[in-house]
């Protein structure tokens, strides 16, 4: 089962306001791209040697924030009421 299929089962209140911003100028100097391995929701995907990012499936675990050694990720919680809404947990 793919991660995106699993995420499709979850309930999200997607905010139009982005809660994670990535400074791509720092990403260009980054070889390790640890965000890809840190994220359990595949929010960071490698395409043509560039990391593309989407926040919609974010499970708000915060791993990418701790993993990025370039401090390229600005991570805050989504606004109150938005983001992941676990039905089971």
């Amino acid at each position: 089962m793919k991660v995106e299929e699993k995420l499709a089962l979850n309930k999200f209140e997607v905010d139009r306001e982005v809660h994670i911003t990535v400074d791509e100028s720092k990403c260009q100097e980054c070889n390790l791209k640890l965000c890809i391995y840190a994220c359990p929701a595949d929010c960071y995907v490698l395409r043509d040697e560039h990391v593309t990012f989407s926040y919609e499936g974010c499970l708000e675990c915060g791993s990418c924030r701790l993993a990025c050694d370039k401090s390229a990720i600005r991570w805050v919680n989504p606004r109150g009421g938005f983001g992941i809404c676990y039905q089971f947990g």
Partner: peptide, 9 residues
């Protein structure tokens, strides 16, 4: 049948 996927630190 998987019904939810979650993650946490």
């Amino acid at each position: 049948e998987t019904v939810e996927y979650s993650a946490h630190l």
